[in-house]
Amino acid sequence: MLELIGISKTFNPGTLNQKVAIKDLSLKINDGDFITIIGSNGAGKSTLFNAIAGSFVTDSGRIVLDGKDITMLSDHKRARYIGRLFQDPMLGSAPGMSIEENLTLAAGKGGWFSRITKAERKAFKEKLSLLGMGLEDRLEQPVGLLSGGQRQALTLLMATYNPPKVLLLDEHTAALDPATADKVIELTKRIVEENHLTCLMITHNMHQALDLGNRLIMMDGGNIIFDAADEEKKALTTEDLLRKFRENAGKNLDNDRMLLS
């Protein structure tokens, strides 16, 4: 279980550009929850992910993962428990290195001086073939040669190679063409289900937010303004979401990309 207890983050405090990104936010995420997150521009969605992943230390509050306080743990140490995908497919893998070399680092097995073994190569091939993109035959090719969709699928595989306690997906299909995006979403669904992952997904696609997962969170002004789970979530429609937003935020939903989709 991941618990956020009253976390806050203000950027550029004391300057003209002061921006309260998250304000006294508390959230309990149960094991196996698949939460979709929607919200207006600048609602604090990505900041929330940065706080969970440890990109910065929050100004106040605590973050507790499975009973362990990780508030002060640095980002690379948290990466052991928290996997993350970004909107930009280029961010998750090293373009100048081969697919198997990238996977070796993601797998993180063996000592510092261990090298890729035959067994590992076999395991990589098996996992890659599940992506259905033919990457299993391209183990030695540099990742830089892959398409955006292939790279994002590879990143998904890397982030979940050792199933993390929490998987953070920050609009990870937003930069892909619709067909590829659908494919990556299907993969995401399958990998999350197979590994019983606890997952948070930011999306600007309201249908996606409604279709996927068992829980939906709406954010505005650095806090959570609506949180629906299970049966309540299943009954929601896009109209409900827009209405809820108006009621709880006191304004119309102003995510420009969301209104277009």
Binding site: G83, L91, G92, L105, A106, F113
Partner: peptide
């Protein structure tokens, strides 16, 4: 080696190195 790969990845994509703990 794994250490060598990590060094190469550091020059290639430091964010990915962090993601690999």
């Amino acid at each position: 080696t794994r250490l060598g790969l990590a060094i190469r990845a550091t020059g290639n994509n430091p964010a990915m190195v962090k993601a690999s703990s």
